[in-house]
Design a protein around this nucleic acid. Structure first.
Lengths: 197, 197
DNA sequence: TGGAATCTGTTGAAAAACCAACAAAACTGC
DNA sequence: GCAGTTTTGTTGGTTTTTCAACAGATTCCA
């Protein structure tokens, strides 16, 4: 892509994120964004229809980055999903301003859905890789269960201004996810004895 | 000036300064500067003839900024030269990377002369404001004396990685400069008695 | 020494960004 | 409710930047 476009788009998006951290989205004007990004006002209109379109594209871009940094394989060329979960948290930590703003700002409720949808996709892949079979209904319930739980933990992490490191939260969450992907395959009768150990 | 020009010029100059802090000026290529500034190589040639021209313009720009931030009057509209000296040191502190690089990098000997020339100008103004009369020869000797001393102190400040704050160095240097602008007007005979006090 | 690779400086055409100006809409404060 | 200000979204003409390609110079290293 043309260098100018990339530079200006990131400048504009960064400006929006910065301003959203300072004030309510509705109070932000295109003029402000342009000044903050050090870009002509017209340039914004050449890329986005309006404020709302910009916000959409901004969310999309951030989540796409998140996914990309999530999926890449580790050194050996093997997918290591725990590592990818850690990378996810690390990227969120790095762009904390953006994620916290969108997760807490009541003006952007759609963001939570975007995020959960992305998590669902990842979890589905996880299940397919780890397990052999699971009927569709059970699988979707599990996906819903785990994605809700995961997004909830992420929300908690941000709203409590990240009370623990990305490393720690990954360990904890990973353990919970693993547990819940193994448990459904153990017979209920066995489960009782296992837990009572 | 066109927004694009300003943005690219500062990006290019900042890139040069950053690279000079990392490696020798001669080892730096235009290609590197362009990549570091995130700018097309041709853009550099549209503003500067070559590396050396860029370095010149870079020095010039920095010193111009220095002068501008030096000269402005204080709140009341009166020139306060001690305050302007302090502002000078503060700006140098802020752009420490640049000044230290150019003062210590043996590849840029002209920078010291640039700096001293600038100081001379300031000192001449100081003398004209403070004192009534002084024949040309004596005045130029005094200017040379004080500017050399000042640049020497600045050099010392940077090469010793700023062992004291801008505030402190200003106080010390100011006291010395004042002393040397007053002394020449005291008769030698009086001087002895004054010092012996 | 000779060949490969890199760096330099320049070109022209295409794309993008700039700016100033505009009318219409929305918001302000009296 | 209404005048004054600000914001919005669009336009056209101009300037700058980008990109790709070029030949010549320089550096590297085998």
């Amino acid at each position: 892509m043309d260098r100018r476009i990339k530079k200006n788009q990131t400048a504009i998006m960064d400006a929006l994120i910065q301003l959203m951290a300072e004030k309510d989205f509705e109070k932000i004007t295109i003029h402000e964004i342009a000044e903050c990004a050090n870009v002509n006002r017209g340039t914004i209109y050449s890329h986005y229809l309006d404020k709302y379109d910009l916000l959409d594209k901004c969310i999309e871009t951030q989540l796409k980055q998140l996914i990309e940094s999530c999926l890449p394989v580790d050194d050996k060329g093997t997918y290591s999903s725990k590592a990818s979960l850690l990378r996810t948290f690390e990227l969120m930590e790095k762009n904390a301003l953006f994620f916290r703003t969108l997760l807490t700002n009541k003006g952007v409720p759609s963001f939570r859905n975007h995020l959960q949808e992305m998590m669902k996709e990842g979890i589905r892949e996880q299940i397919d890789e780890n397990n052999l079979s699971l009927d569709d209904l059970r699988k979707e319930i599990l996906v819903q269960f785990l994605s809700s739980a995961t997004v909830g933990v992420i929300e908690w992490w941000f709203t409590h201004t990240m009370p623990c490191s990305a490393q720690e939260i990954t360990e904890q969450l990973w353990a919970l996810l693993q547990l819940n992907q193994v448990l459904p395959f153990i017979k209920q009768s066995d489960l009782v004895t296992q837990i009572s150990d």
